[in-house]
Amino acid sequence: MIGLTILGAVLALASLSAAVLALLARSTLVAVLAAGLVSLFASVMFLLLAAPDVAMTEAAIGSGLTTFLFIFVMGRIRREGTQ
């Protein structure tokens, strides 16, 4: 029980610092990757909160597919910006 709480506190700290990084980062790519990291830490927190279904969904969708959607759109925009 205590171990779970400590792990939860570490994860909370990690996801909050990733979120701050996502807001403060100068490059948009770093911000997108940090947002994916927030999702990944949140999915481990879902696992601690006894929600394995939600954890799987968040890991696959929130941190996987969302990040790639951003990267695809950024690639499109950068290619057009250089033309």
Binding site: M1, T28, A35, F46, L49, A50, E58, T66, F70, M74
Partner: peptide, 29 residues
């Protein structure tokens, strides 16, 4: 783009709050 990134962070937070409200201490999945 940065606004959209911020929105995804906020939606992760909402999901975390909802799951935490449903959690009863010491219980299983």
């Amino acid at each position: 783009l940065r606004m959209i990134v911020s929105f995804t962070i906020a939606s992760t937070g909402v999901n975390l709050v909802l799951v935490a409200v449903g959690y009863l201490p010491g219980r299983e999945a």
